[in-house]
Nucleic acid binder design. Sequence first.
DNA 1: AATGAATGAGCCTTCATTCAT
DNA 2: GATGAATGAAGGCTCATTCAT
Lengths: 199, 199, 199, 199
Amino acid sequence: MSANKYEEIAQAAIRLFQQKGYHATSVQDIADEVGLQKGSLYHYISSKEELLMKIAHQSISGFNRRLEKIIDMEVNHREKLFMAVQTHITVVAANMQMTTVLLREAFSLAEPHATIIQELTDRYLDLWTRIIDEGIAAGEFKPGNSRLKALAILGACNWLYRWYETDGPLSADEISKVFADIFLDGVAYHKPGGSIPPS
Amino acid sequence: MSANKYEEIAQAAIRLFQQKGYHATSVQDIADEVGLQKGSLYHYISSKEELLMKIAHQSISGFNRRLEKIIDMEVNHREKLFMAVQTHITVVAANMQMTTVLLREAFSLAEPHATIIQELTDRYLDLWTRIIDEGIAAGEFKPGNSRLKALAILGACNWLYRWYETDGPLSADEISKVFADIFLDGVAYHKPGGSIPPS
Amino acid sequence: MSANKYEEIAQAAIRLFQQKGYHATSVQDIADEVGLQKGSLYHYISSKEELLMKIAHQSISGFNRRLEKIIDMEVNHREKLFMAVQTHITVVAANMQMTTVLLREAFSLAEPHATIIQELTDRYLDLWTRIIDEGIAAGEFKPGNSRLKALAILGACNWLYRWYETDGPLSADEISKVFADIFLDGVAYHKPGGSIPPS
Amino acid sequence: MSANKYEEIAQAAIRLFQQKGYHATSVQDIADEVGLQKGSLYHYISSKEELLMKIAHQSISGFNRRLEKIIDMEVNHREKLFMAVQTHITVVAANMQMTTVLLREAFSLAEPHATIIQELTDRYLDLWTRIIDEGIAAGEFKPGNSRLKALAILGACNWLYRWYETDGPLSADEISKVFADIFLDGVAYHKPGGSIPPS
DNA sequence: AATGAATGAGCCTTCATTCAT
DNA sequence: GATGAATGAAGGCTCATTCAT
């Protein structure tokens, strides 16, 4: 079983699942896309769902791996949050289709796949929460419900899959700067002498 | 055709579309839920998709209507953004199932429905953008790409449908406060004398 | 769901399963036979296997029911064994197709169906064994492994499904007489003064 | 093409056909069992059905060959019938899997194979019938429909494939004794002075 | 001798929708 | 208004067999 062909099939699946959705994509569609008979696909995959699973797994694993690396870096916490945002947004922008499949279609996974993806997704949220927590502990971030804050930031960043245009005018870097600025300092001007860290 | 029965069907559809997804919900499922035969449903609905459309339309229209009211209020812009956030989150929390159908399932709509929902969604983003724009114009918010900022805030707020638990420990109000605080002032402490509005 | 139509489908299934075998009969074949679309069959049946199960169940249940009645009769044990043989053979002959499905195709049943049919089949053997046992206890039959004897008799009688011809020259009654005679007294002449019951 | 490998494949097929049935056994299953790829099997066999045919043919031929030898022996006819029963049962018991394939699966054979096996099977019945006939002619067996009697005896003996357990408590010899006793003298005690051969 | 990619027909089942009653 | 029988297209998947390498 040539790994090339499998990769080709997976790429076709990513494209189609993104365009039409998992349920609306038939195995026939995928076969057509790679120029095989429907039945021939099954030399490479064991089921349509397995394909979805592989895609989702690869996607969320990538996010986790990258964030873990960032967490291990020795930079201040503003910087770390910025890098996390930037990396996430860069990955989403560079892998719009795959990310869309992860965020929109993984819901169609049955057990035991659903749970596996859910756990990896939970882990990803944990990592973001840790970034906030460590920023608070270091006195760089304001105290508060760190998980909730992580959800706000992660939600905003994930939402990109719904509106980002690969050929649009905004680069991932530009978006990252604006987003990180909001998360760190907000959209409003601050009242002078306002929220200064206690010393 | 009793409007009551239609409403009952729509509620069943909302519940089922949320639980199993639009594609995985069969017309039979809906019929079972309301105690009718599959064929009888078609006295009330013209198609399964129409049901999805109605739900999505009602949902996004509600968001728009509420946000328009807020925009028309005469309060300062920090306050207005807070209210927008609070209202959105309250609505999501109070209508988790319907919001989930809007945000997760409306993608399955075919034309012309897809475009109609897309336009209402675009309009909703426009309203958020206007709130930011007006805050900037009033000197309360920092200048910048307002649409991008609106997308960040809206994304964070929409994402609630993925994690909010109706019977969980967090109230919509608590979440709103944390979220609005992040959007307005960020998670970080500010460097003293930092981003002060130019005078 | 008209019971008539179901019965018609079941009859078609019996005919086809007998002619071609369960696996070689497609749902399409059955649908063709009753003049429905393949999909329409599923208004009446829940699966192809359910059809096989129903047939097998009805068949073995009939055998059990009839044998239980005979066991309860008050006749001597030679007579009782004769009636059991006659009844079994008559039923096989009158329901060749259904019996063939039971004896040849029930093997294709998956769990939990396989076990259910197996238990009913075991029960049938138990009933035959009881007939032998009671004949022995009454001093009419020679002692010995009654279950083994039941298996010999039942095997001979079941085997009918392999060779009996509905339009052939032999009636069920003629066969019954020959078979019962063999089981009771054997094919050989007895050595004079031979196996006489102890007094 | 090594005959060894072919034999290995045939053995695997016997095992699988017996366990799962002919239709439920895939060529892949057989290939797995012998550690070849599916495609490689076709260096040894020309089709799945050919495999079934070979097995069935070998099995029924063995039965015929053995019975012919017995028929040629010079012993009295009670003895001859006993040996026929004993031999048949011993072969079934010693080759349960192969016999099961013959008796349960050969039905799946298409033409011309089906007819060939049928003829060999008919021939086997003829041999049994001859044993009865010759016993009658010799005055050892009671007159009557010899073919029918052969069918009774053969049916009982064939049925073993449905219940015999290789590791069970009953040896082929014990079964043979009980079976032959039934066929020769029946299960019942005889009325004194009863069926004595006319002199 | 062995592989493994590919075929193409066929399998059982589901389903949204229609319509006569 | 309600039924339930019927449709017909499509769905995911299996499989015996072929063949170039």
